[in-house]
Design a protein around this nucleic acid. Structure first.
Length: 508
DNA sequence: TTCCGACAGTGGGGTCGCAAT
DNA sequence: ATTGCGACCCCACTATCGGAA
């Protein structure tokens, strides 16, 4: 199959807004792809690469060579060239990579260049990724979508699952099983604003668990072999020896557990996320990193214990298996209750002990990848500040032509100026985007680089955020974590905005 | 007919490793 | 030694479609 076939299908998918029509376009293409190229086609049309990454990003794709007029590139040919690009390493590799990227793009038509460039940047923008592709695979293979989803949970990689479905139908999908050493798609949580809201969504007794601000881990053990994966299913086994040792000392030799690793201080309180993240990312001198920043692990779910697959069991049954397989100090603290007041009290305790929040879990739902089922709901406290907009950046995609990303500043009583604390584009409705575009163009003042519009600092906006973190990027040495817009405070002037001292007191 | 679950899109800050400067 | 890039960790929120109620 030719790359142009995919580029054309992608264009058709982009052009139709209805998801059923997108599905139909994708399924039509899957109906005529050769089995050997099915995996590549499914990956590309759901915004993925079979290589996962190839070391080519936004900057490397700035100046593509002149396009060809005739489309001749095959899927296999493009795939193989990307393999070669990924394999490059060592001195001179960046020049070699540039040369190969140039060779690759020089053999493509304009339409193919656009498609591949978007794919490599991770911005397909066709309104269809994995979720729509699941439906398309089901349609093309003539199998129920639920079978595809089930296999995807177990295999964690849709291109492989899709190719199997196209080749062997339901039978091939049913052949996917939990395999120790091969990661499963992790179950994710929705969020709620309060404990009450979370209880209301689930109904009946629930489990309320600590939510630790660390890194999600899925730990596998088969005999003496332990493997650890992140939420995105990256293998980080060599970076977390503490977890490998913990798994190795457990009595069960056949295990798949779900949990979180986190760096704790000597007094048991959590280090900032930055510390845990840095530790988990360290690969060059793990023993030294470990000595300086030891990791603790807390498990909260069991997917397999002693040869028994538990994914389809209710949450409580899985937790019982976990509690039987793991010593209590390795189990995430939790409370099972039907009483909202008990849940609230537990939540307050967790926050007091310095942790991020809680996850409220149904006792009944099976382990399912993605957000389906809504069996897990996270609740975190929320801070707010009234800050001043210092500048705004032009948006892209569906926000093209609108001022979108806001630069936020706190008042500095000493200088009478403002100290930038970060940016946000979140929480804005279409109506608000239109309003702020007009407003900020009206008060634009100072340097403008075609990307950022500096404005007179006189617009106050209420911002919600999760916390204040240390920053080397901003002049105040701090930045807001997960900042989002609540509303504009048109009733306030800039001299009524919150101060840097208030922000500093939150960092502690 | 209305409601709501699932998705895709739009980007945020921080860290590490690597190659180039 | 420093800088730039890519990849990945954490992520919130709105608009939209289409099936569920």
């Amino acid at each position: 199959m030719l790359l142009i076939d995919l580029a054309r299908t992608s264009a058709a998918v982009t052009a139709s807004s209805a998801r059923l029509a997108k599905t139909a376009h994708l399924a039509e293409l899957l109906g005529r792809v050769e089995p050997e190229e099915a995996e590549i086609a499914i990956a590309y049309l759901s915004g993925e690469l079979p290589q996962r990454n190839v070391g080519v990003g936004w900057t490397s794709l700035q100046d593509p060579p002149e396009p060809r007029l005739a489309a001749t590139a095959t899927l296999r040919g493009v795939h193989d060239l990307l393999d070669r690009i990924k394999a490059l390493a060592g001195p001179g590799s960046q020049a070699a990579r540039r040369a190969l990227v140039s060779e690759l793009f020089g053999a493509l038509t304009r339409q193919e260049q656009v498609f591949l460039s978007r794919l490599l940047r991770g911005e397909l923008r066709q309104g269809a990724l994995e979720g729509v592709m699941i439906e398309a695979v089901a349609k093309a293979a003539g199998v129920p979508a639920a079978e595809v989803r089930r296999a995807l949970t177990l295999r964690g990689w849709l291109p492989a699952v899709g190719a199997a479905a196209l080749g062997g139908g339901v039978e091939a999908l049913r052949a996917f099983h939990l395999e120790v050493g091969h990661p499963v798609s992790p179950m994710l949580a929705q969020s709620a604003a309060s404990i009450t809201a979370a209880f209301d969504k689930l109904g009946g007794p629930v489990a309320v668990e600590w939510k630790l601000d660390g890194v999600r881990v899925q730990a596998h053990r088969s005999g003496d072999r332990v493997t650890v994966f992140t939420r995105a299913l990256e293998d980080i086994t060599t970076q977390v020896p503490e977890l490998v040792e913990a798994m190795s000392t457990l009595p069960s030799r056949d295990l798949v557990l779900d949990g979180e690793v986190i760096a704790l201080r000597a007094d048991g309180r959590p280090e900032p996320f930055q510390v845990t993240s840095g530790r988990v990312s360290s690969r060059t001198d793990v023993p030294r990193a470990r000595e300086k920043t030891p990791l603790s692990v807390f498990f909260f779910d069991a997917l397999r214990v002693d040869g028994a697959d538990l994914l389809d069991l209710p949450g409580e049954a899985r937790h019982a298996a976990l509690a039987a397989a793991v010593p209590p100090e390795l189990v995430t603290p939790r409370l099972v209750t039907g009483d909202v007041a008990d849940g609230e009290a537990f939540f307050k305790d967790v926050i007091r002990s310095g942790h991020e929040g809680v996850v409220v879990k149904s006792l009944l739902t099976p382990y399912a990848a993605g957000r389906r089922g809504a069996g897990w709901i996270k609740v975190k406290p929320r801070h707010t500040l009234d800050l001043v907009v210092l500048a705004a950046e032009w948006g892209s995609g569906r926000r093209e032509g609108r001022l979108s990303n806001l630069h936020l500043g706190a008042r500095d009583p000493l200088t009478g100026g403002f100290v930038m604390l970060g940016k946000t584009f979140k929480g804005l409705t279409d109506e608000l985007l239109a309003w702020q575009t007009e407003r900020f163009l009206g008060i634009a003042e100072g340097p403008t680089d075609g990307w950022t519009v500096t404005v007179r600092p006189e617009t106050v906006v209420e911002i919600a955020f999760d916390g204040v973190q240390q920053s080397s990027r901003y002049p105040g040495g701090m930045a807001l974590r997960f900042a989002r817009v609540i509303r504009y405070r048109t009733d306030k002037t800039a001299d009524q905005a919150d101060t840097v001292d208030m922000v500093r007191s939150l960092m502690l």
